[in-house]
Design a protein around this nucleic acid. Sequence first.
RNA 1: GCCGUGGUGGCGGAAUUGGUAGACGCGCAGGACUUAAAAUCCUGUGGUAGCAAUACCGUGCCGGUUCGAUUCCGGCCCUCGGCACCA
Length: 861
Amino acid sequence: MEKYNPSEFESKWVKVWDEAGIYKAKDFDSKPKKYILFEFPYPSGERLHVGHGRSYTALDAMARKYRMQGYNVLLPIGWDAFGLPAENYAIKMGVNPAVTTKENVANAKAQVKSWGVSIDWDREINTTDPKYYKWTQWIFLKLLEKGLAYQSEVAVNWCPFCKTNLADEEVLADGTHERCSNQTERRMQKQWVLKITAYAERLLEDLKTVNYLPKIRIQQENWIGKSEGVHLKFELKGHPERSEGSSLTVFTTAIDTVFGATFMVIAPEYAQNLHELIPANSQKTVTEYIKNALKKSELERQTQDKTKTGVDTGIKVINPLSGKEIPVFVADYVLSNYGTGAVMGVPGHDTRDFEFAQKYSLPVIIVIKPEENEVIDFWDYNKIKEYRGKSILINSGKYDGMTAKEAKEKLVNELVEKGIGEKTVNFHLRDWVFSRQHYWGEPIPVLHCPKCGIVPIPEDQLPVKLPYVEKYQPTGTGESPLAQMTDWVNTTCPKCGGPAKRETDTMPNWAGSNWYFLGYLITGHPERSEGSSSGVSGRTVWYIPSLDSSVSPQNDIFSENKDIFEYWMPVDLYNGGMEHTTLHLLYSRFIYKFLYDIGVVPTSEPYARRTSHGMVLGPNGEKMSKSRGNVINPDETIKAYGSDTFRLYESFMGPFDQTIAWSEEGVEGCYRFLRRVWVLASQGDALRNQTSQSLKRALAKTIKKVGEDIDKMKFNTAVAAMMELVNAWTADKNGLSNEDLKKFLLILAPFAPFITEELWQRDVESLNSGNLDVKNSNRWSIHQQSWPKFDPKLIEDEETIIVIQVNGKVRSQIRAGSKMREARSEIEALAKSNDRVLKYLEGKEIKKVIFVPGKLINFVI
RNA sequence: GCCGUGGUGGCGGAAUUGGUAGACGCGCAGGACUUAAAAUCCUGUGGUAGCAAUACCGUGCCGGUUCGAUUCCGGCCCUCGGCACCA
């Protein structure tokens, strides 16, 4: 008997499947469609790691099963090749990123192929291909046209190591850059910004229409951070005729505490504009404070110890409800870019305000009290909101005695009526800084004309190709390396014909991933005929990463492919890492909604369902990293055990969404399992004539469980079920018949596509004694067969074990057939006569008998 | 501090409309095969006591509901992830 030696056949099948094109998805097929998507990788110098493997092999198992169940499945891949990782690698190697990216893509592609992922390779994309980023730029122009892209002098996050600006989402809580872990700084700079905040409400609201893993949905909700409240005017004392307005406006979500507002605090940036209101005697200290506060970077303001500082401006305002005169302080704990930049200080019910009031000896008034607790000096408003009993207003004039909820409604109505308040909504979400001062990204397709201002590049001149640059290292001056390319930068204005300069900022690496799942769908376009042939189908790879590939003018691919979008969208299942929940996932939803609004896509949400896979840690339980020396290279695992083992272990290691440490011994166990399958399946025909009834039953149960578990993404228990079956199979004298063996191979196929194909083909050959004719047969491969059926009666008829309990403790058990297990009186009689049970029942009075059909009987004595 | 996850044998984990806790894998122990080792196969494997049948204990901690709780309720501790002066 041959030994199980996966290296002898795995690479063969990769080639055969590729050439036969068995994983191609068909547009407009009459079968129901399933669009299964995983996040496309960025091909840096590192090879794909076991984390990619976890996501890809799991979704591949689903794709394979759905294909077997008669779905028209699309499982595509591409390369997110612009951005910092690729550029940093290129700088390290001293080679232009265009060159290294090409190599890295080739390497990653070879890996994915060797894993046996059932990709439709005709749809491969690359974000750095001009034919692709032409449309990334086109989307930008549309955003510009609709006023959703604008330039603004903004405080940006500057990474001194990567020498570029970053989006808020790319900076971690401790102020470091998520990619390189260096401290970032804040700088003021003119930047392109996308108005994602215009979509805040819809990005939040539409989460209700999609099926996201709850933790993903909640994280998005928190990031968008909607809070409903009130804008409330406080009259300035002694400035009734002021032209800019005679009041200061605060934002509050706790209007029911307004009687407790004993001071107001404004942000330093805001105080700057109120200079003329500040009395002469406090001018000096206030100006000083503002100066110091503004000098501090945002980072310092955030990370320094959170003791509150501030100074009294000398300005007085009137609390519109209590009528009391209150002081206005300036303090840097109030943010200028949230709400109005001014807040009312309610020290009785807000910890920050309380701290501030203590420090500056400001009065504390309690305006809400819990029902039974009479003496308090502070009661957190957050607790009031959750308080189950009644929270009653006190010290609040005519609102005394009302519950907080009641008072809130009445107060809002009164304030709105009087014209001093209005309902408002605020979001934590900020607009998206879209400029990067880097070489390796999509050029922003505009130019600056001294006469006409910002001029978009006309659509028919897209793409604005990234020119070849000798010096692509970041400059550190805040300018892109492109700025040094004077030949490229200096151009003529398409509007007035005068001299103009190109925009030298490029887009962030998120730009290409905003719409890549649409890129996979675009087919049949003339431009697809360029590039190298990918195989027998005659279809070709469309996007080749190359800086000098020619791009001919063409029509709008979006409107031309509308019917294809309608067929495939939305994505049925999208899996990726949790780290992209507030980045890519939110950004791409925003851009997709925009595309929906301008009529190019058929749905308002791109992803019907979003899941995430857990991180794979190193064998020592720590995050894998080179410095820790605990990186597992999938290539080595595959070399030692084969792809099937690698795939099977990735599925078996633990619950899909949970973080798990890699275990080499676990890999070994999966290898042993596959080897046992190999040996058992290779046994001679004489041994495989008929399957025993009990093994038939076990097989039926396994088919059922594996199918259900794949649907539920419980890959680990699906594999465990198959292992269980193999244990039963090993113990069984007869083994599985040919027919049943095939069924088993079919359910194993989504997880271990190579060994099952190899065994399947041997079997087919031995049965038909014909050679495998790939080209002339539609359904030659195991992966083109139908998902096996099982006889539900087999499972139903099985004897079950009925547990006998006395006072809830298990004392014995009896076996019962399918008819018996529902029959209470018979079971009860049997149980009572059971020797072991009798011991406990003897001489005792049975008070109660609890019977759960098919499960247990419990005697309470 | 807030939001979210999770806590089960020596280890990864299984089982929740409340119903035999520990499937499956790893590890370990014993046995078979072998000159020997590796590999493979078989058997056992939560803890305590016992030769054994068996009994008691056992799902982070404390309490509650129930005939019965890993599962439900109340309170607490810890892990990991996210957010964080957001009014």
